[in-house]
Simulated assay, not measured.
Amino acid sequence: MGASFEQRPQPWVTNISIDDIHSRDFLAISKIHGRWGGFETLEKWVCGAYAGYTAVCLRDSEGKLWVGESRHDNEQGAGATEVQYSNGDNAIFVLFLSLRGEDVIAVLPWDEWWEFELNKDDSNPHIALLPLHPDMRAKFNETAAWKYAQSMNGKPYGYHNMLFSWIGTINANYPPLLDAHVVASVMTVCNQMQPAYAANMWNEALNKRLGTEVPSYSICNCLAWDLPDLIVKTEMRGSSFAELLTIPEQDDWVYSDGRSASCVAFVLEIYKAARLFDPISRSIQVTEFTIKDAYSLRFFENNSSRLPKWCNDGDDVEFLFCQIRGRYRMELPGYNTMDPYPHMNEMCPSLPPKYSRPSNCLKAFPMM
């Protein structure tokens, strides 16, 4: 990938003023150590992203700053957290978090989130604040954003669609030594050893792609197909497992535990609900976006004079985003360069080492 890991001048933690952080601003995070550091390294390798996690800033009606994220470790949760947002019609949205011992979607007070990242996160997180462009901030529908956050807060992390945002082609997304056959083999082993895990990670999603899911309202005593059946039935329909993996995820799909959103899908679903993808939002499936796809969107600030004064303070390299934590300088190749287009990222290659892609990857897949 060519990441340089250049050391930044100290201090490695920015003395920020939260008054300069706007609701809607994007947080790009790269974790280096531990469980998530290992996972994110794999994620970066397969899709070419220079960050492995995302979150979003939101302000409530009283101006208090919050952070929304999907993959919050709630193992040490201390009960329910409530957030109230009131729009002009005095509608009250109550966001709550009450799950324990799992990765969930959460909306947390900025102070709580920042304290954890500074003093308790053992993954050595590197964090960049990506301010939205003023035109995007003006377009942002705050009420709709909070309403979507309310509907998702406390739900499980989006394992159902985490894998599929990376695969958009039959053979142009797999790094060397990987292909759809290897993916099928790994899935088959996991299906035998951890069937519940496999069902959560891909079986439900594959049944949706094949049109073989059992609706929640069904009165029949029947089951969706397991992985071996899915592979056989796909071949019987004249297709292949490799092609099945490329069918785009749909944002409105509902799984057994509700709608599913990975970290980047959650942030972009908020942007989509807030009308940032209008007028083409109906032809955008943000669950098809990788983290690289997200920070490449032309949504962000392009004028350094509008960045906060503390942004990259003391650094001799000028960026159009603000790194607020981390020893090494964060790089985001392709940052803020792509305008949205219909069916964006549904069929894009991502082969290392350059992860090159056409400027407009277009193809709409029919359901099988």
Score class of each variant (00 low, 15 high):
W114E: 05
S61R: 10
N153A: 15
I21K: 02
S356Q: 10
N15M: 07
A273T: 01
Q84T: 12
Y271R: 09
G238L: 06
S61Y: 13
S4G: 05
D278V: 11
M330A: 00
D60S: 15
H343Y: 14
C57F: 15
D135A: 10
C348V: 01
I21G: 00
N200P: 01
C57W: 09
E6Q: 11
I29W: 00
E115Q: 14
W166H: 09
L95D: 04
M136N: 04
V104T: 06
Y50I: 00
S151T: 13
H160P: 04
W225V: 04
I18P: 01
K309E: 08
S216K: 15
V186Y: 14
I247R: 05
Y295C: 12
N74Q: 13
N87R: 12
Y53C: 01
S98F: 12
S262R: 00
Y159T: 02
S61T: 11
P175Y: 13
L268Q: 03
W225H: 08
Q194P: 04
Y197P: 04
A294E: 01
T287P: 05
P308E: 11
V107S: 06
G158C: 06
S218C: 15
T169M: 14
D257R: 03
F299W: 03
C322W: 02
F164D: 10
F241A: 05
F299M: 07
